[in-house]
């Protein structure tokens, strides 16, 4: 039972981080209908900046700068295609993001070299005993920060002008344009938000017990992709549900050491969960797009 609770709490912490990343996918998809495959490298970019600055500046400043760089990077990707390719097919744009992803991760891999850089977070390897379960302090903080960010996001999404413009544009782009919604600004903000969320996620993805950040974190980050899909690619709430589901499934299978076909099941469980969910609900748990088009 203790094991179970331990795995559950850790799963929630991991799932929260996945939720932040998945939310970035979803926000960008809602704003532009583009699946952003460069999201994983943008996360590594933010994490790289934070790790490089660690020690030179206070941790909070490093994180803020990391968020800024990731946001600017994301906006640059958006500017790149809306500059000349705005009317292109969204699938072509998605493939373009794969190209950007490869370029960016190649450069980052070169910069990391063989090193695994610590993010310089102040929590170190401290472990907190919650009574029912033990959890690394960094992960506990991660849950808190994630919760605050998610609430802030959903409040903004529900009530702010940006949120209303986002949702209106996602539902009917032309009608929104006719109402005077500035699509470009809404889209740029969406990409910037995705970048910030990714950089914050990088901090907690690479905190203790993970030794630090290197370019391979991108693969871990891409596990949030099945989270976004299974939640419904156009559903913000779905991203959170999907992230938690994947995080908990991964922590459980990893914790109990479940093996499949000679490997650890936790490496593939995000994709397995996604497949099962999609078989039952083709548009994801909370996705609406396909349903409303019928």
């Amino acid at each position: 039972m203790t094991d179970f609770l331990n795995y559950l709490v850790n799963g929630i912490s991991l799932g929260g981080t996945y939720a932040l990343i998945a939310l970035g996918f979803v926000v960008v998809f809602k704003a532009t209908e583009v699946v952003n495959f460069a999201h994983g490298s943008l996360l590594v970019l933010g994490g790289y900046v934070i790790a490089r600055l660690a020690g030179d500046v206070p941790f909070v400043v490093a994180v803020l700068l990391g968020c800024l760089v990731a946001a600017v990077g994301a906006v640059l990707v958006e500017r790149l295609y809306s500059w000349r390719l705005r009317d292109s097919n969204v699938n072509a744009l998605a493939i373009l993001t794969i190209g950007i992803d490869i370029l960016l991760i190649t450069e980052l891999t070169r910069r990391f070299g063989p090193d695994i850089l610590p993010t310089g977070d102040p929590w170190g390897n401290a472990v907190v005993d919650l009574g029912i379960a033990k959890i690394a302090q960094a992960r506990l903080v991660g849950i808190g920060v994630t919760a605050v960010l998610l609430v802030a996001f959903f409040v903004a999404f529900k009530y702010s002008s940006w949120g209303i413009a986002m949702r209106a544009g996602a539902e009917d782009g032309e009608a929104a344009a006719l109402m005077g919604v500035r699509r470009g600004r809404v889209t740029m903000t969406a990409w910037a938000v995705a970048g910030v969320l990714a950089a914050v996620a990088a901090v907690f993805l690479c905190a203790f017990p993970t030794p630090g950040i290197d370019a391979s974190v991108r693969q871990t980050a891409l596990r949030a992709f099945p989270a976004a899909i299974l939640g419904g690619l156009d559903s913000t709430a779905g991203a959170v549900v999907g992230g938690l589901a994947i995080g908990i499934a991964e922590a459980m299978t990893g914790g109990y050491g479940v093996r499949l076909a000679g490997g650890n099941l936790n490496d593939v469980v995000p994709y397995l969960v996604m497949l099962v969910v999609l078989l039952v609900r083709p548009s994801g748990l909370l996705g609406t797009r396909e349903l409303t088009r019928v």
């Binding site: 002008s161 209303i164 949702r167 209106a168 539902e171 009608a175 929104a176 109402m179 609406t288 409303t292």
Partner: peptide, 13 residues
């Protein structure tokens, strides 16, 4: 905007 409330539709306008 069918998924938005009446008030949100007006806000969008």
């Amino acid at each position: 905007f069918g998924r938005l409330s009446v008030d949100e539709n007006l806000k969008a306008g």
